[in-house]
Design a protein around this nucleic acid. Structure first.
Lengths: 175, 175
DNA sequence: GAAATATTGTTCGGGACCAAACACTTGTTG
DNA sequence: CAACAAGTGTTTGGTCCCGAACAATATTTC
C-alpha cells in the first residue's frame, strides 16, 4: 500500500483532475456539485484508509476490515455475526472468511448461540481485547490528525452532512 | 452486494451505533468530533459505492474499480498506466489485473510506449468509449440522487472540507 | 404435526487488492 | 562505457469481497 504513495509524482493533483474533468465534460449537462461532493467522499475515504493502514495498523498484522470487525465486536460487546457483518459493511460470506483469519490470530472466538443452533456468536479473546484497548486510542489520535485542517464547526457540519447522505441511501435502499 | 441490504433489520441504526460508542468509550479521553467525522466519511463512502454498484453498474458487468479505471482513462484521454493507478487509487499490481479483465471485455487496449520500452499505454476501445458515454450521465444522475438531501451550499462545503482532508494527507504522506 | 417457508452461516468461483519479489529498461556516475 | 542506481509493469501469495448455491435449523401455515 505504501507503494502507491512513494510513487506519487504529483503529475495529477486533485485540482488538475478537476480541471481535466471540466475540459472533457464541460459541454454536457451534468450536476457538477453532486459530482465533486461524491467523488471527494470517495477520494477522502481512500486516503484516510491508506493513512490509517500505514500508521496505526502497520505493525499489527491487522487489515482494515479485520480492525473494523474487531471494533464492531468490541463496541457492541456481544455479537451475532449477522449484526457484525451489517455494521462492518461487509457481506456475511466475507465475514466468515475474515473471522477465520482473526480466529487464527486468536483475537476472536466463535461460539454457538445458546438456543438457536443456526446462529454463531463472536467475542474478543483476552488478547483481542487487549489489542483493541491499546490500538483504539492510537487510531483516534490519527483520526484527529486526519481532520486537523478542519475547525470544530466544519467537523460537525461534515459529519452531519454525511449522516444525511447515509440515511437518505438507507431509507431509499429497499423502496 | 444486494444481500447486505436485504438483510438489514434495522437493529443497529447509525444513531444507535453512535450511542453504543458513547456508552463504551464515554470514559476515555477521545476526540469524538474527529471520530464521527472520519467514521461517517467511511460509512458514506461504502453506502455510496453500494448504491452506485446496484443502480448504474448493475447490468454492465463492470466492477466499481473497473469503472473508475475506465473513467480515469476516459477523462485523461489516454494514459500511462502508473498515472492511471495513482488516479484510481489502486496499486500498480492491482491495475495489471484490472486491465487484464477490462481487456478481456474489449473495453481497453494496451499498447507499448513509443520510446520507453518499460512503459505501457492504455486507451479505451471504441466500445469502451461508447460505454462511458452512455454510462457516465447515468452515473452522474445517481450522484445527484445521493446528495439530494443536501442543498447547494452544503454540497460545496462538503466537497471543500473533504478536499482539505485529502490535501492534508497527501502533503503529510511522505514527510 | 407435517409440509412449506424463512433465516442463518458456510462454501464456492471469480475478481479486487496489497506488498514484495522479479525482470526488464533507462538513467547516472565514476 | 561499464557498473550501479532508479523506474516500470508483471507475477506471486495471501486476504478481502461479492453473489449465489448450499445445508442446517427455526418458524409459519394448514
Amino acid at each position: 500500500m505504501r507503494e502507491r504513495h512513494t510513487e506519487m509524482t504529483g503529475h495529477h493533483t486533485l485540482r488538475s483532475t478537476e480541471e481535466a474533468v471540466g475540459d472533457r465534460l464541460g459541454g454536457l449537462n451534468l450536476d457538477f456539485e453532486a459530482m465533486w461532493a461524491v467523488s471527494n467522499i470517495y477520494r477522502a475515504s481512500t486516503a484516510i484508509r491508506n493513512h490509517l493502514e500505514q500508521t496505526v495498523l502497520r505493525d499489527t498484522g491487522l487489515t482494515w476490515t479485520g480492525f473494523v470487525v474487531m471494533w464492531v465486536v468490541w463496541i457492541w460487546e456481544e455479537s451475532e455475526t449477522r449484526h457484525v457483518a451489517e455494521e462492518a459493511g461487509i457481506a456475511k460470506g466475507t465475514l466468515t472468511g475474515v473471522l477465520k483469519t482473526l480466529e487464527s490470530y486468536r483475537y476472536v472466538q466463535r461460539m454457538p448461540h445458546p438456543t438457536d443452533r443456526r446462529r454463531v456468536m463472536v467475542t474478543l479473546t483476552p488478547s483481542g481485547e487487549r489489542l483493541m484497548r491499546t490500538l483504539f486510542p492510537q487510531f483516534n489520535q490519527e483520526e484527529a490528525f486526519v481532520v486537523r485542517e478542519l475547525d470544530s464547526e466544519r467537523r460537525r457540519t461534515l459529519a452531519a452532512s454525511l449522516r444525511l447522505v447515509v440515511q437518505h441511501l438507507e431509507s431509499a435502499g429497499r423502496p
